[in-house]
Nucleic acid binder design. Sequence first.
RNA 1: GGAGGGCUCGCCUAGUGGCCGAUGGCGGCGGUCUUGAAAACCGCUACAGGUUCACCCCUGUCGUGGGUUCGAAUCCCACGCCCUCCGCCA
Length: 418
Amino acid sequence: MIDLKLLRDDPDRVRASQLARGDDPALVDALLAADGARRAAVTAGDQLRGAQKEASSSVRGASPEERPAVLERAKALAAQVKEAEASQAAAEVALRAAHLAIPNVVLPGVPPGGEADFEVLEQVGQIPSYEFAVKDHLEVGERLKAIDTERGAKVSGSRFAFLTGPGALLELALVNHAMAVAQRHGLVPVIAPALVRPEAMEGTGFLGAHASEVYKLEADDLYLVGTSEVPLAAFHSDEILDALPVRYAGFSSCFRREAGSHGKDTRGIIRVHQFDKVEMFAFVPLEEAEAEHARLLELEKAFLTDLELTFRVIDTAAGDLGSSAARKFDCEAWLPSQERWLELTSTSNCTDFQARRLGIRHRTTEGVRPVATLNGTLCAIGRTIAVLLEVHQREDGSVHVPAALRPYLGGVAELTPA
RNA sequence: GGAGGGCUCGCCUAGUGGCCGAUGGCGGCGGUCUUGAAAACCGCUACAGGUUCACCCCUGUCGUGGGUUCGAAUCCCACGCCCUCCGCCA
């Protein structure tokens, strides 16, 4: 939810943000109108309630003669209060609906436009070249007996895979390395629930435009999370935090319906319904959000560098931001088999948008204020394995293991087909 | 799945129709005292909304929603959540 004070003070900024995202600026005016209507309803209700309160407390002191008249007056006011409360409730509902319709206000500097309008900030490493015909990650993985998509499909359907042998060990190594890095930088390791209540899902903004991406367990009114951002954000919901910053690194399985991506990335494990991920999450004062965002990006870059991958960093365009994000940086690694960049990590500055919905605040000298929330991928494991297998493959089918991962793999320097 | 118990201000707790936004303790903050600290004593100590430059003031909030009533933390109904015991179970 955006800050209504900002909207009142500077509606043009919100309109400009809507335009940059390619969303309807008229929604901003609808929200302004709903806000005004609610305020009028609240004021009217407060006055009536005050009068009614006075009337009912005068009932006790009334003499027997005047009692019937006083009671009559109090009753009449009670009826009016009831009406006023009904219209106040209606105004609140209308305001909330209008409020939820507006995504976060983008930060200055975010490129306007859609998915293709990102800005490349930097490239780390050289695009690798190979003196043999590169295989894609599935072929490499199958020869290593690390990935089994056929049995994944047999057991669970399309877009499911088994990680076996070296594949499974690689996952554990990546998790361990990610958690070690996280701890070294002061993030608290967390194993998060993958099933959450509707409030958590809604509060993080995943039930809006992307609701069809989400698995829901109807019988239990629970959702399967698509990222541990959801449980990590909701971890402190309805709390007033004493000391900031608070930083976590959460591990969980992630579930995505991939409803709108038929025919896209169908091969291998680049786009599957279930994968595991280590996600960073930070709660900081609003003024420190941008600095924290830079910090999360640095951690992501360092992690990819540890894995000896080539990647570029992009500043995502406004229209490609999630509804909660005010700015988003993606790290995209080079995928040799397709000779293209593939998103491996993503870090979003959600400013106070999620915190407002989730009721996460902290005390400042000016009072209790919503915090800023930020998230960032430390390691999306399945996709990272896919890229590692491709980038570090050799002609003989073996795969070079980056030095950073060796301690977690019994010291081996390469994976070889059995 | 079966049977009970409970949800009040950061934590614990008092409170069975108007004098309750709500008692007391702990914790926290400020002050007195002290070279400093502790102890003791005094004071302050929820959030949201409306109005306001600000103070004041007004309104709402005792798990949530509804009902009864002139008036509800207190009575009624529904729901949610937490806990305990039994059963089952990684």
